[in-house]
Simulated assay, not measured.
Amino acid sequence: MIEARDVVRAAELLHDVVAPTPLEYSRWLSELVGGDVFLKCENLQRTGSFKLRGAYVRMARLSKAERSRGVVAASAGNHAQGVALAAQLLGIKSTVFMPNGAPIPKEKATRAYGAEIRFVGTSIDDCLKAARAYAEETGAVLIHPFDHPDIVAGQATTGLEIVEQCPQVRTVVVPTGGGGLLAGIATAMQRDGMPIEVVGVQAAGAAAFPASLAAGEPVQLDRMTTMADGIAVGLPGKVPFETIQQYVGDVRTVGEDSLSKAVLLVLERAKLVVEPAGAAAVAAVLDEPKRFKPPVVVVLSGGNIDPLLLMRVIRHGMAAAGRYLSLRVRIPDTPGGLATLLTELAALDANLIEVVHERISETLSLEEVEVALQLELRGEEHRQRILTDLTTNGYSYTLN
């Protein structure tokens, strides 16, 4: 376990490397929670996430001989960029294993920092196996994304900034994958006379910590499915696990709908771009706002998201919030049939985004056609009103 002095030393190493990220007051989350809520904007950190902190501390402490052999890392993108930039700053050759399908912007940014990229497997765990094999073969030093004391100490400097920027903080909510950031912030929150609860948040489809904490040791997940690739880690790190056992009282999980709604709301309300993993803590607060004792600091851990994924996540988030509706409606194949349907929807204040008129299909009778609609709505109540109206007026529909 790292101690307070380790965090202070890490902060000294990072003094001229990372800039303290803003702590922004969130009025909309404060209203939900019933007290002050702040956003710790690590999505605005250099490379777009907190990962540079740990990577630089780890690599700055390598010996001259270790540096000469180069470093290797495994990452879906954020740790990759942190390692690549740290290596560039320190004059070290870097190789990064990324899973197939890794976000293109993260890949391009990693290459731009000078790293060699190799694709393998479909998960961070696959990449870690390949990176370890590469390290054994070449002598390169493995820079683990979360399972090393220097990595945890570097990430803990985020917690030091939180304490300096919000001395009155009572709860800190942290997106969690392998546990490095959570363990680091939990260590930084240990102050005499100041009880601060640190809550971890994982994607429900990649939640290794609840079962691991119940078992008393890291437990490997059999499978993972989540849009939050940045926290999709199947096995918690041994180094952060002990700290989390001791200092973190609760690790919560959030679903895909909650993640997408969080990304959308942070974009709309805070005017900040975050990736699904970076919005996990916001999702937890949205799910159960009264659970968190204010003042609350919610960590936005990363903002590196593929624009195409962002478009899909926004649409998913709008659908989850009842603000987007995609459906297929059958109407009579008579003159004015489509106009009648669209007039009724307009009267219900539905904003038509797209309409496709399909006349020929083996599932349609000769007397009907099908219309594919995409609508923008005001919320769940509005959505239910439209669906009820369609049924009342004799339309049959299927939701996409």
Rank of each mutant, 00 (worst) to 15 (best):
residue 4 A to H: 14
residue 16 D to Q: 09
residue 26 S to L: 10
residue 27 R to A: 15
residue 29 L to E: 05
residue 31 E to T: 07
residue 36 D to G: 05
residue 36 D to Y: 09
residue 40 K to L: 13
residue 40 K to G: 05
residue 45 Q to P: 03
residue 47 T to P: 03
residue 48 G to T: 09
residue 59 M to A: 13
residue 63 S to D: 13
residue 72 V to T: 12
residue 78 N to M: 10
residue 78 N to H: 06
residue 81 Q to Y: 03
residue 92 I to C: 02
residue 101 G to Q: 07
residue 102 A to Q: 01
residue 106 K to M: 04
residue 108 K to G: 04
residue 115 A to R: 00
residue 117 I to V: 14
residue 121 G to L: 05
residue 122 T to I: 11
residue 123 S to W: 02
residue 127 C to T: 08
residue 129 K to L: 13
residue 133 A to F: 10
residue 136 E to L: 15
residue 139 G to P: 04
residue 140 A to E: 02
residue 147 D to K: 00
residue 150 D to S: 15
residue 168 Q to C: 15
residue 178 G to Y: 04
residue 181 L to Q: 03
residue 182 L to A: 03
residue 188 A to T: 05
residue 192 D to L: 15
residue 196 I to G: 08
residue 206 A to S: 12
residue 206 A to P: 04
residue 210 P to D: 13
residue 213 L to A: 09
residue 223 R to N: 11
residue 226 T to C: 07
residue 229 D to P: 00
residue 233 V to D: 01
residue 233 V to L: 10
residue 235 L to T: 12
residue 244 I to W: 00
residue 248 V to S: 05
residue 252 R to E: 15
residue 253 T to R: 02
residue 254 V to N: 02
residue 255 G to A: 13
residue 255 G to R: 03
residue 257 D to H: 08
residue 259 L to K: 01
residue 260 S to K: 06
residue 260 S to R: 02
residue 268 E to W: 04
residue 278 G to Q: 05
residue 282 V to H: 01
residue 290 K to Q: 15
residue 291 R to M: 14
residue 292 F to L: 06
residue 292 F to W: 11
residue 297 V to S: 02
residue 301 S to K: 07
residue 310 L to C: 07
residue 311 M to T: 13
residue 315 R to D: 14
residue 322 G to S: 15
residue 326 S to N: 08
residue 337 G to R: 02
residue 341 L to A: 10
residue 341 L to F: 11
residue 345 L to D: 00
residue 359 R to L: 12
residue 361 S to I: 10
residue 365 S to N: 14
residue 371 V to A: 10
residue 373 L to M: 07
residue 375 L to H: 00
residue 377 L to C: 14
residue 378 R to N: 12
residue 382 H to W: 05
residue 384 Q to A: 09
residue 385 R to D: 11
residue 388 T to C: 13
residue 388 T to H: 12
residue 389 D to P: 07
residue 393 N to R: 14
residue 393 N to K: 15
